[in-house]
């Protein structure tokens, strides 16, 4: 493979790997900007991946080619409902949000596997017939060099993911809802004094994060694996969490970080087949641990503590100072 051919392979694959991370990480941005730590992203993603596959298998005869897209909506819905548990615990019951998130993670994988065994009588589902299709974007695909890199056989979901980042940026920074969201996350008491319902905003934010993580999981299962088993998501949710932090709790930052993590994952799986000498010489394990090590380094080096929303992780108790 020439260097250009390598790029033609790596860049689309990186974007494909990044799409689920972008959705989930931006979900995390919503939740944490409102002051609710959401470690449960992994569990929510698992839920989404599971629902996406099961819905796809069940309704493929009804919806035909549209099945994967409608599966995304189903996954969004179920994961959003599931995330209400986290909202209730961390907003109304004043639970430790990290612990509640851990419970969500355990519960997500347990419910999904329990249901899979109940429905299929084995540890993983069947393979879906209709995966999310790859499309060529007209006109743009004919641009020399850039065309095959970015616009040939891309997943529609990747385009959606990148668009979502900008929509999320607009919502968080340019709308009244976004302003309220951020104020609740920075100083809930001040927001409360101004007549904003802290718990309403936090509930909304957590449910949005659940829905987006659900879509993220369903994208992953419907593009990468094609079935659902115990190892389908395996840490993607935590990687999204890392992308959110790496991106400084900002949608565009999260987008960049997710793209980078997608690139690192692509290198990890394809390093051995890339015919470039110095990449071949590096053992695959270094690529595997790269996203995690980078996150640690980023936290230690580039990102100060000040970037996290100030009230992140603290339940708001009315009347207390």
């Amino acid at each position: 493979m020439s260097f250009l051919e390598v790029l033609y392979f790596i860049i689309p694959t990186s974007i494909a790997y990044a799409a689920p991370l972008i959705f989930t990480a931006i979900g995390g941005v919503f939740s944490e900007r409102s002051g609710v730590v959401n470690i449960g992203l992994e569990g929510l993603m698992v839920m989404g991946a599971f629902v996406g596959i099961v819905f796809n298998l069940a309704f493929v005869d009804v919806f035909g080619g549209w099945t994967p897209w409608i599966s995304l909506l189903a996954a969004m819905l179920v994961a959003a409902i599931f995330s209400i548990m986290h909202a209730v615990a961390s907003v109304s019951f004043r639970a430790d949000q990290v612990v509640s998130g851990v419970a969500i993670n355990m519960l997500g994988i347990a419910i999904a596997l329990f249901s899979v065994k109940m429905m299929f009588g084995k540890g993983q589902t069947d393979f879906i017939q209709e995966k999310i299709p790859r499309v060529n974007i007209p006109i743009l695909q004919d641009i020399p060099v850039l065309g095959p890199m970015f616009f040939k056989s891309v997943y529609g979901t990747s385009v959606l993911a990148i668009a979502l980042a900008f929509v999320a940026w607009f919502v968080i920074y340019k709308t009244p809802f976004g302003l309220r969201l951020r104020s609740v996350g920075e100083h809930p008491m001040a927001a409360d004094t101004m007549g904003i319902s802290v718990s309403k905003i936090r509930y909304t934010a957590v449910i949005i994060s659940g829905g987006l993580a659900g879509i993220g999981g369903a994208i992953y299962s419907q593009t990468m694996t094609g079935d659902f088993g115990h190892a389908t998501i395996n840490g993607q949710g935590f990687m999204a969490l890392a992308a959110m932090i790496f991106g400084k709790w900002h949608p565009i930052g999260a987008l960049g970080a997710a793209l980078f993590f997608g690139f690192a994952q692509t290198l990890a799986i394809s390093a051995s087949s890339i015919d470039i000498d110095f990449i071949q010489k590096i053992p695959a394990v270094y690529f595997h641990i790269l996203p995690y090590v980078l996150t640690i380094l980023a936290l230690a080096g580039f990102i100060g503590k000040a970037n996290a929303p100030k009230a992140n992780g603290e339940p708001y108790i009315k009347g207390s100072r």
Partner: peptide
């Protein structure tokens, strides 16, 4: 019965302990 039911129970117990306030 799939053995994951126990993982569900364990996760729920954590959830309830965490929500001890209520």
């Amino acid at each position: 019965i799939p053995l994951e039911i126990v993982s569900i129970v364990v996760a729920l117990i954590i959830f309830f302990v965490a929500s001890g306030y209520i």
